[in-house]
């Protein structure tokens, strides 16, 4: 019997070998390149050069944009998810498909399409022109970049929140109302805490791609708003400084791990207060 169990455990062996070769080894290479110079000698100068005003500004901007996009997504998505979870099961299914459907279109094309909408001679300004307004300058602004993030990643916020709301036992809401809580109190003390897991995974799924994007900022920011992703992309695809690129990627990973830890801690504390 034991032999048989060992044998079936061995089914995971190809995956484990694969993970070591193509997940762990590549990450070690990131660390290796980040800590060496072009000749392969050990150096800390790659990290050192990141502590300059230029790079600090980029890191700060990326974190700010990603934070804003995440907050906006959360504020927009929560009511939508709540609304969907309150419809009939059949409608729920349809609405969730409708939420995810745009994600199946290539995101480069969707982002490019926003250029056509936001441009100075674009669709919004054409329409504004008809009623004698504008033109309003929208493209190549910070707002346009954040809009691109919100647009592209909003479904990843709606979906997990919807999932946790649809699992929420309606009797809790009823009990809260019976015990004299008004609608707002119920939302704050019952519904929000019970959908925390959905909120947290939504935040992760929006924040991580937002802070690491490079296409959105290039297209909708017109190259005026360099983000971490842009700098990494440049090191690997045009500047060919793999060592610096690896160091920036390393910092990006650390930044994400730190923000996720802080958020999880925050989430737990919130839960503690409510409980």
């Amino acid at each position: 019997m034991k032999k048989r169990s060992l044998l079936s455990q061995a089914a995971a062996a190809p995956h484990i070998v694969w993970s070591v070769l193509f997940i762990i080894a590549p990450l070690l290479f990131v660390a290796y390149y980040a800590l060496t110079d072009a000749d392969g000698n050990f150096t800390l100068s790659n990290f050192g050069s990141l502590f300059t005003a230029e790079y600090l500004e980029i890191f700060l901007r990326s974190a700010c944009f990603a934070f804003l996009a995440t907050v906006i997504c959360l504020v927009i998505a929560y009511p939508v998810a709540y609304f969907i979870s309150k419809t009939s099961p059949k409608t729920q299914k349809l609405l969730i498909v409708l939420v995810m459907l745009p994600q199946w279109m290539n995101f480069l094309i969707r982002t490019y399409s926003w250029m056509a909408i936001l441009e100075d001679t674009g669709i919004i300004n054409t329409v504004l022109g008809w009623v004698g307004l504008g033109p309003v300058h929208m493209i190549n602004t910070a707002g346009a970049v954040i809009l691109g993030m919100v647009y592209n990643f909003l479904p990843y916020m709606i979906l997990p929140i919807y999932t946790s709301l649809s699992k929420l036992d309606p009797r809790f809401v009823e009990a809260s109302a019976d015990l004299g809580c008004n609608a707002f109190g119920t939302l704050l003390h019952v519904i929000l805490p019970l959908s925390r897991s959905g909120i947290i995974s939504g935040i992760t799924m929006v924040f991580v791609p937002s802070i690491s994007t490079f296409y959105i900022s290039q297209k909708l920011g017109g190259g005026n708003f360099d983000l971490i992703g842009d700098t990494i992309e440049r090191q690997f695809q045009s500047a060919y400084n793999y060592n610096l690129g690896a160091a920036i990627s390393f910092v990006l990973m650390v930044l994400i791990i730190v923000s996720m830890t802080v958020m999880n801690r925050f989430g737990e504390e919130e839960g503690g207060v409510v409980a």
Partner: peptide, 27 residues
């Protein structure tokens, strides 16, 4: 351990997964 490693590509930003594999292949 297996679960943690398995989830890395899901948690890591795509750009990091991309460049880490690129570095391996180039090396």
């Amino acid at each position: 351990a297996v679960n943690t490693v398995t989830n890395i590509p899901m948690m890591n930003p795509d750009i990091v997964t991309g460049i880490s594999l690129m570095l391996l292949f180039v090396f």
